[in-house]
Write a protein that binds this DNA or RNA. Sequence first.
RNA 1: GAGGGCGUAGCUCAGUCGGUAGAGCAAAGGACUUUUAAUCCUUUGGUCCUGGGUUCGAGUCCCAGCGCCCUCACCA
Length: 526
Amino acid sequence: MNQPPSAADQPLTEDQLKDPRVARRDKLRRLREAGIDPWGARFDNRLMISAARELAGQIKYRTEAGQELDLPEISPDLDLRKWRGEQGPGEEIGPQVRVAGRIMLARDKGKLVFLTLRDWTGEIQIFIGKGQVGDENFDLTKLMDLGDLIGVDGRLGRTNTGELTVFAEKLHFLTKMLEPAPDKHAGLTDPELRQRMRYADLAFNDGVMKTFLDRTAIVRSVRRTLDTDGFCEVEGPTLHAIAGGAAARPFLTHHNALDMQLYLRIALELHLKRLMVGGIERVYELGRVYRNEGISPRHNPEFTMLEAYQAYGDYRTMMDLTERIVTNAIEAIGGGFKRKFGDVEIDFTPPFQRKTYAELFQTATGVDPVDVPAVMELAKSLGIETAGKHPDVIRNEIFEEKVEDSLVGPIFVIDYPASICPLTKRKADNPEIAERFEMFICGMELANAYTELNDPDLQEQLFMTQLEGMAEEDSMAKMDHDFVRALRYAMPPAGGLGIGIDRLVMILTGQRSIRDVVLFPLLRPE
RNA sequence: GAGGGCGUAGCUCAGUCGGUAGAGCAAAGGACUUUUAAUCCUUUGGUCCUGGGUUCGAGUCCCAGCGCCCUCACCA
């Protein structure tokens, strides 16, 4: 994609150079003329900027008598020049460092240039004095723009104001940026541009890198928690002949050789359960699922889901596991158990609250959830359509409207009405109640777990019931006969858990939109 | 899919009552060897999202379209 060395090699006029892109291209040309590769090369033995910053304690002031003094406490009003004067003649000494990164800010003082250099671990100031780096090397600064990548060899020290600085001795040009830099203070704020050009968002907007590195740390921690518990990570198929395990519209695709319609998976559940039948007693998958539904601050068509199944456990086993997954993830990124999300503070100090669906319903509405006539009346007063709907469905719509949004959490809502939980085992002493919990934080569903239904005949029957009255084209409305057959080979009693990883990352990193925790959210083509 | 908001310089944003466009940053030229959103002087830069309409005249008002954001709907 590189443009050939400027076709027009005649000198550009001053007016043409006022276009930032033209000016950058011209500097590219001048770099080549000076015999410098504008695209750089291998650059070994550099220190990460954060590691260089950790060497600050090695900076000393050596007096003429050879005494090495520690620098004074750094504070905003410190005048190091004055302090050095008070110590008598001498010089500052510090470790030799090599760093590399992107030029974020430049302060040109004529024969002296200050740069703010950033790599993925942090920022550090670079001091480039004409006398210190030599005329030829100093001329490089005339060819540098905001956003360029450079390497610096120099001595770590402090300026008169105490700012930790690499005093450059040698500059290395590493890569030219040809596009104009975003506003140096505000960065890129247009949400569309930020998502379309995530590279620029990461490079120029404060905090974006941190959020995505935190995401990685969270995912790593989730895996570590499960691995430590003896869970086995697997990779199930993403192309499904039947899209099951959840109720969502799937993406459709086609396999040519088999001439067969396929769906992108909408859940991980049914294949993981097959593996439990096979004897993988603790199994999980952390991967992408796809749902062909609307896009919102909480929904992206592809998102990352964790599902974990533990043989001989139940939903209470999964509650403990969920709590450990979340608290370990918090410890992995730091910041403590009390965290802000928007205006609310969430306290993750375990144990998390546990309340039954029925008691939350009763408290929020003042209506006994098993009193069907009262529930129907409440629904009417809320304007909820009741015709042709099962009372449990209506009750759940009320629950979603009156309870879920107000759950700050973290809270486990437990014991759901059985009829809305087709893959869940019923309570032994009450077939109306399913052993299920959902965990809510800030009105968002983050986790969903069951004591898994392992009765193949009941499972088959529930599938049938669920399919009744569903449009044929609703592709999820298809019986997964193989899954039922698998259950007939005996799936152990088990607890199963699903966690929306993107939403977990949102909550833990304080991001209000799922698009701020997904590197490349789905966008219309430009 | 419905409703609301937004779309102006490379970036961040102003733009009054309808009178042919403004700032900061970036860029170009100049001064400055301890600055830090450096500062100071000078200069340049516009398909006002697109297409229609009203009007003597539209960035501004009206209609349609496109894109983004928010709310709702959809989403076990």
